[in-house]
Amino acid sequence: MEEQYKIFVFKSTYLTFKAERALKGAHVSCKVVTKPRDISSDCGLAIRVGASDEQTASKIMGDSGITSLGVW
């Protein structure tokens, strides 16, 4: 069965890596990926987590003061 992912998009690359550090620090598996074109025409990056980790990831980022632009 194909694994489901969620993509967190941030305003800046700086925030993307700040989020990556916060998630890895909390042992949440994540990966920095290119923003999918259907989310943004921007040539920036995003964070991909397993769909089951979406809520956990949102909480960790919130606790770290990191605001995402949205989740897809």
Partner: peptide
């Protein structure tokens, strides 16, 4: 900057 490449002006966020 690699960010907000759709804009013809500089992004409004730092450090970009």
């Amino acid at each position: 900057t690699g960010s907000r490449s759709d804009l013809d002006r500089m992004p409004d966020f730092l450090p970009d």
